[in-house]
């Protein structure tokens, strides 16, 4: 996954994940009646910078390493925690989104926040920046695990194959007049190419051209087939149907020329821009048609070494 995408994903997740999903619930606490000297072992052994002070289940304060050091320098280690702790504690509710915690960390510069239950105000956990990062990473890992595996395998596909010439072929059936499913082919091809690690700009061109070709098959014919051929050099898409054919190809290629019926226009297509769009997206385009027999469209987009390939491709 590229960095920009990862950041967007994280931005989404900090709104989605709740504080109680990443906080530590096994919290070390002290009583307000403990002596300050008793903190020494706790702070040192657990390597923590602050401890919530709890009476019963209620959070009454927070005692930090700073409070401890100050107490030490004043030689008053026999003071009670309750006399040295800060009572004005910033807390988070357990059901708040992580973004709130992130904002508080930014604003206050503290290392940790106690988390309290919204229902009864009891201390239920503690959250640190580390907990947030761990929580996010875990979630991203789960969300992307499958997609990453797909992409890894696919992007090294050409590298792993030893042959003089390698061509991957993907075939799709397009059902005529079925508008609810129109676009599935281009959508599927787009996802496949993304998994292969093809550059996004090239995917966009292929996807748009394929989508227009797919719409043409759906609109004008009873069905057809779209085939994509991927080599390390280029992507070639062929759309074949056995529909009514195009009587005048030159005319059909003119921007704005359309024979589409009104119901097609109602769907947002049929304005005579389809073939123009396809030509704009493709490096080469070839269209042949016989009236009464069908139409064959072939486009190609050059990869120009954008995809890694094995040295088996000798030239």
């Amino acid at each position: 996954m590229d960095a920009e995408k990862a950041i967007t994903k994280v931005q989404e997740l900090v709104y989605e994940i709740k504080v109680n999903q990443v906080m530590v619930t096994d919290v070390i606490t002290v009583s307000p009646h403990n002596l300050m000297s008793e903190l020494r072992v706790l702070l040192h052994d657990k390597r923590i910078s602050g401890v919530p002070v709890v009476e019963g289940t209620t959070l009454v304060g927070l005692v930090s390493i700073e409070d401890f050091v100050k107490c030490l320098s004043e030689g008053k280690m026999n003071n009670l925690v309750r006399d040295r702790m800060s009572r004005d504690v910033i807390t988070l509710y357990d059901d708040e989104p992580l973004v709130r915690a992130v904002q508080e960390f930014d604003r206050r510069g503290y290392g940790r926040f106690p988390v309290i239950s919204r229902e009864n105000g009891a201390l239920v956990g503690v959250i640190t920046k580390g907990d947030i990062i761990r929580g996010l990473l875990k979630r991203i890992e789960i969300d992307y695990h499958e997609e990453e595996i797909h992409r890894y395998r696919a992007s090294y596909f050409f590298e792993d194959i030893i042959a003089d010439k390698t061509t991957l072929i993907f075939q799709y059936k397009v059902t005529g007049k079925d508008f609810s499913r129109a676009g599935r082919t281009s959508s599927g091809l787009k996802k496949t190419l993304r998994r292969m690690g093809i550059p996004p700009k090239i995917i966009r061109r292929i996807a748009i051209a394929t989508y227009e070709a797919e719409m043409n098959i759906v609109v004008f014919t009873d069905g057809g087939e779209i085939t994509a051929q991927v080599t390390p050099r280029e992507i070639r898409v062929e759309a074949v149907d056995s529909g009514p054919g195009i009587p005048d190809i030159k005319k059909a290629m003119e921007p704005g020329f359309s024979t589409a019926p009104d119901w097609v226009r109602d769907l947002g297509f049929g304005a005579g821009m389809g073939l123009t769009n396809i030509r704009k997206c493709a490096d080469t385009m070839h269209l042949e048609s016989t009236v009464g027999k069908g139409t064959r469209l072939e486009i190609a987009v050059q990869l120009n070494g954008a995809v890694k390939h094995d040295s088996g491709d000798h030239h």
């Binding site: 748009i208 227009e212 304005a271 821009m273």
Partner: peptide
């Protein structure tokens, strides 16, 4: 409203 223009 014209999806071909959007695509283009």
């Amino acid at each position: 409203d014209l999806m071909s223009d959007v695509l283009a």
